[in-house]
Simulated assay, not measured.
Amino acid sequence: MILVMIRTIILFILVVIALRIMGKRQIGKLQPYELVIIIMLAELASLPMADNRFPLVIGVVAIITLAFVEVFISYTALKSQHLREFICGSPSILIENGKILEQELTRLRYNVNDLLEQLRTKNFPDIADVEYAILETSGEISVIPKSQKRPLSPADLHIPTEYEGLPITLVIDGFVFVNNLQKINLSEQWLSSELSKFGIHDLKQVLLATLDTQGNLFYQLKTQKA
């Protein structure tokens, strides 16, 4: 029993490391070869866990090899357009200038019902509003609406806007991100001083604290003290 637990922990850690090396991707965003590698990783990890007679080293070597293959293919595809098209495919235009391309749907074995369903998930229930629809290599559909159907933006109304940027996370669950403070030339002492103005004298009480580009400090306390 102890041996099974140890083998399981080792394989779990190894698979997690392999997936981290492959990068951050949602399951629906995976390229075909990435999905194949993930399926094979899961199978290779399950064999040594299910059967103690299966040598652990074989599973470990196979998982490391697959991770290396994925990294090699990814880096090679960055340099070679032909390899990238062969492995990942290329985007396909399904709607062009507001017209459905029937031949492309037939070639991809993609029916009109599937197309309409995907458009609805993109908040385009009326196909007459669509200028272009492109099927990406990940299987997702990118939709470009007709110009008269696009939402207004401040630029359309010639309204000037100020830079917003992203707020900087300073504290999460009592943990202070010192590196983030250093990036904006602030210190933990400054943070403590600012929070003390609101009666907060212990950073461990803070659930979340952020600072936006305008210098506004947002904070929320924990409902239960640590």
Score class of each variant (00 low, 15 high):
74 S>V: 01
79 K>R: 09
80 S>A: 06
67 A>C: 12
75 Y>A: 08
142 S>G: 12
181 L>E: 08
166 L>I: 11
114 D>E: 09
62 A>N: 14
123 N>I: 06
111 N>T: 11
137 T>G: 06
80 S>T: 04
165 G>H: 10
188 E>V: 07
129 D>Q: 13
116 L>T: 05
73 I>L: 13
186 L>G: 01
180 N>W: 00
137 T>Q: 06
175 F>N: 07
53 R>K: 14
69 V>I: 15
162 E>W: 09
69 V>E: 13
95 I>M: 12
105 L>N: 09
122 K>V: 00
89 G>R: 11
121 T>E: 14
169 T>Y: 13
70 E>C: 07
116 L>E: 06
61 V>E: 08
134 I>T: 04
69 V>W: 14
108 L>N: 10
183 K>P: 07
81 Q>D: 10
109 R>Q: 13
128 A>W: 00
99 K>W: 07
142 S>Y: 14
89 G>W: 10
175 F>D: 06
164 E>G: 11
172 I>S: 05
111 N>D: 15
75 Y>V: 08
75 Y>N: 11
103 Q>V: 09
187 S>W: 09
156 D>F: 04
176 V>L: 06
116 L>H: 04
69 V>N: 13
95 I>W: 02
52 N>W: 04
177 F>T: 04
70 E>P: 01
114 D>C: 00
51 D>Q: 09
176 V>F: 09
108 L>E: 14
182 Q>Y: 00
146 K>R: 08
173 D>I: 02
54 F>P: 01
118 Q>G: 05
103 Q>K: 13
57 V>G: 00
76 T>Q: 07
151 P>G: 09
53 R>Y: 12
145 P>G: 06
158 H>I: 12
62 A>Y: 10
91 P>D: 07
139 G>W: 05
52 N>Y: 05
55 P>Q: 05
184 I>P: 01
109 R>V: 06
189 Q>I: 06
118 Q>L: 04
50 A>N: 15
174 G>A: 08
87 I>E: 03
155 A>I: 02
68 F>H: 02
55 P>K: 09
169 T>S: 14
81 Q>V: 13
53 R>W: 08
89 G>N: 12
143 V>S: 07
96 E>D: 11
139 G>V: 03
135 L>G: 02
158 H>M: 13
194 E>T: 02
99 K>E: 15
174 G>F: 05
117 E>T: 13
143 V>C: 09
192 S>R: 05
161 T>I: 15
120 R>F: 04
146 K>D: 01
143 V>A: 07
155 A>R: 02
177 F>D: 10
62 A>E: 11
92 S>C: 15
96 E>Y: 10
140 E>L: 03
83 L>Y: 11
189 Q>C: 02
139 G>S: 06
107 R>A: 13
77 A>Y: 01
57 V>S: 00
175 F>C: 02
100 I>A: 04
67 A>F: 05
60 V>G: 02
95 I>D: 05
174 G>V: 04
